Amino acid sequence: MARYCFCLQVKPERMAEYTERHRSVWPEMQAALSESGWHNYSLFLREDGLLIGYVEAGDLAEAQAAMARTEVNARWQAEMAGFFTGLGGRAPDEDPWLLTEVFHAG
Rank of each mutant, 00 (worst) to 15 (best):
G106V: 00
W97H: 12
Q77N: 04
E62D: 15
L45G: 05
A31Y: 07
A91K: 11
V72H: 03
F6L: 01
A91G: 01
A2S: 11
P92K: 00
D95I: 00
F83I: 06
M67I: 15
T70V: 15
L87Y: 04
P96E: 11
L98G: 11
E62I: 14
G58R: 12
A65F: 08
A2E: 09
W26Y: 13
L98A: 11
S24E: 10
Y41R: 01
A91Q: 13
M29K: 07
E28F: 03
M80A: 14
G86I: 09
W38Q: 01
S34Y: 04
A91R: 13
V72N: 03
R75F: 05
W76K: 02
E101V: 08
I52C: 02
E17N: 10
D59S: 13
P92Y: 00
L45R: 04
A105W: 07
M80Y: 04
E56M: 04
K11R: 14
V102E: 07
H39D: 01
E71K: 15
V25T: 02
A2L: 09
H39V: 01
E94T: 15
R23S: 14
H104Y: 07
P27N: 09
R14M: 14
K11M: 05
R90W: 10
D93C: 05
A31K: 15
A68S: 15
E47M: 05
R14G: 01
W76V: 12
D59A: 14
L33T: 02
I52A: 00
Q77H: 01
P27A: 10
L50D: 06
L99M: 12
L51R: 04
S36V: 11
Q30H: 03
A63W: 10
G89S: 06
A74C: 04
L51E: 10
C7W: 01
R21V: 02
A2N: 10
S34N: 10
N40E: 03
L99F: 03
E13L: 09
Y4H: 13
L87G: 02
L98M: 14
P96F: 03
C5I: 08
I52D: 00
M67V: 15
H104C: 04
V25P: 02
C7L: 04
A61K: 14
R75L: 09
R75P: 00
A78L: 04
G106K: 00
A68E: 15
Q64D: 15
A61P: 12
